[in-house]
Simulated scan of single mutants.
Amino acid sequence: MPSFSDPWLHPWLPAISARSTTSPVLEIGCGHGDDTAVLADAGLRVIAFDLSRAAVAAARLRVPSAQIECRDIRAPFPPQASELGAVIASLSLHYFPWDETVSIVQRIRDVMRPGGWLLCRLNSTEDHNFGAGQGVRIEENYYSVDGQPKRFFDEEAVCRLFDGQWQRVSMTHQRTRKYVRSKALWEVVVERV
């Protein structure tokens, strides 16, 4: 799938840098390294992973300064991922049943220090160009779309996912043309309390 520049991280770079002076940034689901390159170009140490071997190979070539691994998000995080000040998860938390999604977010919280930020983007229930409300329903707002499980979030689900142990910094509904067609998503920044 072709992709275009999507500078969503740029406004957040000063805050990410301020929180990552003594620890690397963990990027979950780095794909071909678009966000990895932005983070590395900002002078940050980056530990990244993705499930796709092809994507990891491309990201390693693109950002040789980053530590990039092929890893499933459900597996333990890299050993260096502890006491983190920032974690990035752009469009990588939507493949799982609700209970597993909640568990993954808790595991992310567990590797962060208090005051650390999680910056993530989540599929929106308005993301009709990429399968929202389509395919075979598995559970509420979770579908098998062309054989691929995909979760779509409404505002209530985003709030529920980050309720309790996170302080909301920002939550906005946006559209991007990163994948040529308009994609609806939630951009969320939360602080570990």
Rank of each mutant, 00 (worst) to 15 (best):
A15L: 11
D72N: 08
P11S: 11
E155K: 15
S103E: 09
N123E: 12
S3C: 08
W186Q: 09
Q174Y: 00
L61D: 15
A81S: 15
L91R: 01
R151Q: 01
F49I: 07
D146P: 00
G147V: 12
S92I: 02
R175P: 01
A37E: 13
S182H: 06
R45K: 14
N123M: 09
V190L: 02
R177P: 01
V158H: 08
S3T: 13
G85C: 09
P14D: 08
G164I: 05
F77K: 07
T125L: 02
L44G: 08
R121H: 14
E69K: 01
R62C: 10
Q134Y: 11
S20N: 02
E140N: 06
A89I: 02
F130I: 09
S20F: 10
I88A: 04
E83L: 08
T172N: 12
A55Y: 13
A37Q: 15
C30W: 01
R74D: 09
Q80H: 10
K183L: 14
M112K: 04
L44S: 06
G147K: 01
A42W: 09
W166N: 08
G131M: 06
E156Q: 15
E139R: 10
R151C: 07
L39A: 05
W98R: 12
A57W: 07
T22F: 10
P24Y: 04
F96A: 11
A54C: 12
E126D: 15
W98V: 11
S20W: 09
F130G: 04
S92H: 05
S170D: 08
Y95N: 12
R175A: 09
R175G: 11
W186P: 00
F77H: 02
S92W: 00
E140G: 00
W98G: 07
D50K: 10
V38M: 13
N123F: 07
V56S: 03
L118S: 02
V193D: 04
A66L: 11
A18H: 12
H128G: 00
A66R: 09
S65E: 15
L9S: 15
R151D: 03
D154H: 12
V169G: 00
Y143V: 03
P64S: 01
A15G: 12
